[in-house]
């Protein structure tokens, strides 16, 4: 395995190189970072974590990275391990996001993302409401009218119950004055089957993150009726829910968290690292390539954002009967 061996040699070399050969000018901010990913390799959080590694290494911000993936249950298997085993560790960071909040609430877990130290929000993704290409619903207004009349007659496909897609549907029904529990929500495991059910016209509509449906929308197999973010997605002409008279905003964000019990100075160092990382050309390049929307927010603003999101999510989950 040439590539892996080369990587191994590079990693081995990096250890000695970091001690000896870097000029003082470009001294890395951290000798090493321990990156904890509460999900299996290959998913969104893992992808974000590896992208951070890539950007930091290209810019010599960090000497070396060590990864630990502990997947399962929306991060609720990994989170306790991060909190218990890495308490006070100044160079330990975890990549997580909105999904973990919902997972903690539905698992009725005593701990949640708020038990870690928020460092920075990096990316976010709007939800999108779609219908099959040949759907009778020509506009968002028609879909809303159908929801108002009887939500049970409008089956909507999305990810697992209690996840971000389900929550968005709940918020929409609530805004329409219906009980979120009336939703005919058809949960699918993973994006593939949901995509197929919508394209195949098995359901009336679908909700998911924009990237999940992007190719089908572009290919004309689905029609996007609304996006759920504050504002429109750059380069995409789909109007927001708010523009269409529904006061609902939600987005699936991902960010970086520090271990509980670290000192304010250590926290500031992590914030500095992530904000320098965000300014690197390598990171900007990754954002463009993966079509991630930059939504950088650090420090106390991010902490407030997390607290607010936890509050809001608890509210919706109660309405959905999941909390």
């Amino acid at each position: 395995m040439t590539a892996t061996r080369r990587e191994f040699l590079m990693a081995a070399g990096a250890l000695s190189a970091s001690a000896l050969s870097w000029p003082a000018l470009a001294a890395p901010q951290f000798e090493s970072i321990f990156m904890f990913v509460p999900a299996a390799p290959g998913g969104g959080w893992d992808g974000t974590a590896r992208a951070i590694e890539q950007a930091c290494k290209t810019a010599d911000l960090v000497g070396s990275f060590q990864f630990e993936n502990v997947g399962g249950s929306g991060g609720m298997v990994g989170l306790p391990r991060f909190i218990n085993q890495h308490k006070g560790q100044a160079n330990a960071v975890m990549v997580a996001g909105a999904v973990m909040i919902g997972a903690a609430i539905s698992a009725k877990s005593p701990i949640g993302i708020q038990n870690t130290v928020p460092v920075a929000k990096l990316t976010e993704e709007s939800g999108v409401v779609v219908v099959p290409a040949n759907s009778p619903f020509k506009s968002f207004g028609e879909l809303v009218a159908a929801f108002k009349a009887d939500p049970k007659k409008v089956p909507v496909a999305g990810g697992s119950a209690g996840g971000t897609d389900h929550i968005l549907l709940g918020l929409m029904l609530k805004a329409l004055g219906r009980n979120p529990r009336e939703a005919a929500y058809v949960a699918f495991a993973g994006g593939g089957p949901a995509n197929a059910a919508i394209i195949g016209g098995q359901v009336a509509a679908g909700i998911s993150g924009y990237s999940e449906f992007e190719e089908q929308i572009k290919g004309g197999r689905m029609r996007a009726l609304a996006v759920s973010g504050e504002s429109r997605i750059p380069g995409v002409s789909v109007p927001t829910l708010r523009e269409q008279g529904m006061n609902v905003v939600s987005a699936n964000w991902r960010g970086v968290f520090g271990a509980p019990g670290i000192q304010p100075a250590q926290r500031a160092a992590l914030e500095r690292l992530i904000s320098s990382m965000r300014d690197t050309p390598a990171w900007k390049d990754i954002l463009v390539k993966r079509r991630w929307a930059d939504s950088f927010q650090a420090g106390s603003a991010f902490e407030k954002y997390v607290a607010q999101d936890v509050n809001d999510t608890v509210g919706v989950m109660k309405d959905l009967g999941l909390a």
Binding site: G72, S73, M76, V77, P80, S106, A107, S109, S160, A161, G162, H166, Y185, V186, A187, F188, A189, L322
Partner: peptide, 16 residues
């Protein structure tokens, strides 16, 4: 966790 409703089934309190 039940995919359709998010209810826990036979988990006996184990996150794993």
């Amino acid at each position: 966790v039940d995919l359709q409703t998010g209810q826990h089934r036979f988990a006996f309190g184990q996150a794993e």
